[in-house]
């Protein structure tokens, strides 16, 4: 029996889709059977990030409406035979699916897969309610910006209200040099405010843009910091204890912060 993880953020553009694609890839690398679901109906994107956009014939709405069988809509990844994508419909809207239908779908998928990752749409409306329906755990993605953290806080509240207790936090796009100058909130600041467990920190990395351009997730063998960070997060999801990345070897401040947090000696 697998596990359904919803990846959410509230605010748009913080990297939910990139995170979903990379965690899917990272988990598949570890030999897990994974399906990533694009729950952003009407604004699908996970397919292009994974480079699978030209293989889509059926989508989530087709499955839910019974136009096709579930297996027909699942798209096998180019690189990992155990990684699958269930794409969103592009020409429908959020109301094409109900939370009950999503739950039934997730229940069916977790019989087959070790991990079901749901890429949640931005916002807190119907699309969000659909995406979290049937999820066992939640991952909240935020960036060190005041607006993203505020929305993350709101989302954490909504998740808890929906009985999704103890969501885990991923801090994305941390700019080490700005943190060092004191011009960006650091890990400690955000954990202080949001008061949830940290699942991982992904540094701001140009490799993300390049890999997205190519449709190859950065976690796929890339030596980049972001790729390493995503692979580590994937391992943490499987329950492995992985030390947090030393994001800047020359930077004592980050090291000091980690010491405060107990992540480093």
């Amino acid at each position: 029996m697998g596990e359904v993880l919803v990846i959410t953020s509230g605010k748009g553009g913080v990297g939910k889709t990139t995170t979903t694609a990379n965690l899917g890839t990272g988990l598949a690398q570890l030999g897990k059977k994974v399906v990533v679901i694009d729950a952003d109906i009407g604004l699908r994107n996970l397919d292009v990030v994974l480079g699978l956009e030209n293989r889509i014939v059926y989508d989530l709405v087709d499955v839910v409406e019974g136009t096709c069988r579930l297996k027909q809509a699942l798209i096998k990844d180019k690189r990992y035979p155990e990684l699958f994508l269930l794409p969103a419909a592009q020409t429908r809207d959020k109301n094409a699916v109900s939370p009950e239908q999503m739950k039934a779908l997730n229940d069916e998928l977790k019989e087959i897969f070790d991990y079901v990752l749901v890429d949640c749409p931005a916002g807190i409306e119907q699309g969000f309610r659909n995406a979290i329906s049937g999820a066992d755990k939640a991952v909240v993605v935020t960036t060190p910006e005041i607006s993203a953290v505020r929305d993350a806080d709101r989302i954490i509240g909504l998740l808890e209200a929906a009985e999704l207790r103890n969501p885990k936090l991923i801090i994305n796009r941390l700019k080490i040099d700005m943190v060092r100058r004191g011009d960006m909130m650091n890990i400690e600041d955000m954990l202080d405010i949001l008061a949830i467990d940290l699942l991982g920190v992904v540094p701001d990395d140009q490799a993300i843009v390049i890999s997205t351009n190519r449709g190859e997730p950065v976690a796929d063998g890339s030596m980049s910091q972001a790729g390493q960070a995503f692979r580590n997060i994937a391992r943490r999801i499987t329950g492995e204890e992985v030390p947090f990345l030393d994001l800047d070897l020359q930077d004592n401040l980050v090291h000091r912060l980690k010491k405060i947090l107990g992540f480093a000696k």
Binding site: P144, E145, I146, V149, R150, D153, R154, G157, V179, R181, G182, D183, M184, M185, N186, D189, D192, I193
Partner: peptide, 22 residues
């Protein structure tokens, strides 16, 4: 100086906003 670095301003503002929100 240190305490008014922009990240601290951000943190303070955020804390305040969240009290309202929460």
């Amino acid at each position: 100086g240190e305490s008014k670095k922009s990240k601290n301003v951000a943190k303070e503002r955020l804390k305040l906003v969240l009290v309202h929100d929460r």
